[in-house]
């Protein structure tokens, strides 16, 4: 059915937003973790998404120039580590404190993580609304000619 394409596009957006929520949760969870056994400090993660690639068959069958821009969902391009400077907190009693008594904590920006959380949630909801609209259109189409 041709409506399944609309569903697929919305689903791709939902997948991206779901990953964004997951990574934000990871960032928040690791807000106060110190360097692990291997000495590396956690770096905040970000999703990099881009328009989904059209499959080869689609390009082959539909050679028009405009086809490159239409009917492509979103896809996750990469999960990137942000290069924010670590937060230095004075905590001499901490086992991972350095010689001067400072502990390096990941540079997670709490406020921007919360904003990301809300934005991802709203974007997910918008995808669900778009999918429901497509579904309602299909249901309405099925009502054509029905005897109410």
């Amino acid at each position: 059915m041709d409506y399944s394409q609309a569903f697929e596009i919305s689903a791709s957006g939902m997948t991206v937003e779901k990953l964004r929520i997951d990574l934000t949760a990871v960032n928040i969870a690791n807000m106060h973790t110190t360097a692990g056994a291997d000495g590396t400090l956690f770096r905040p993660l970000r999703v990099v998404s881009r328009p989904g690639a059209q499959n080869f068959a689609g390009l082959f069958e539909d050679g028009s120039e405009s086809s490159v821009y239409k009917l492509r969902g979103a896809q996750v391009f990469a999960v990137q580590e942000m290069t924010t400077a670590p937060r230095m907190v004075y905590e001499p009693g901490n086992p991972s404190a350095d010689a001067t008594g400072f502990v390096a904590l990941p540079g997670v920006d709490h406020v921007s993580e919360m904003v990301n959380l809300i934005a991802a949630l709203r974007a997910y909801e918008a995808n669900v609304v778009a999918m429901n609209a497509a579904k309602n259109m299909a249901v309405k189409a099925l009502e054509i000619g029905g005897n109410q």
């Binding site: 409506y3 919305s10 689903a11 997948t15 779901k18 669900v128 579904k135 249901v139 099925l142």
Partner: peptide
């Protein structure tokens, strides 16, 4: 969401 979309598609069909 994939499960829910599959359910919806089946219902629509």
């Amino acid at each position: 969401h994939q499960v829910m979309i599959n359910l919806e598609e089946a219902k629509l069909s």
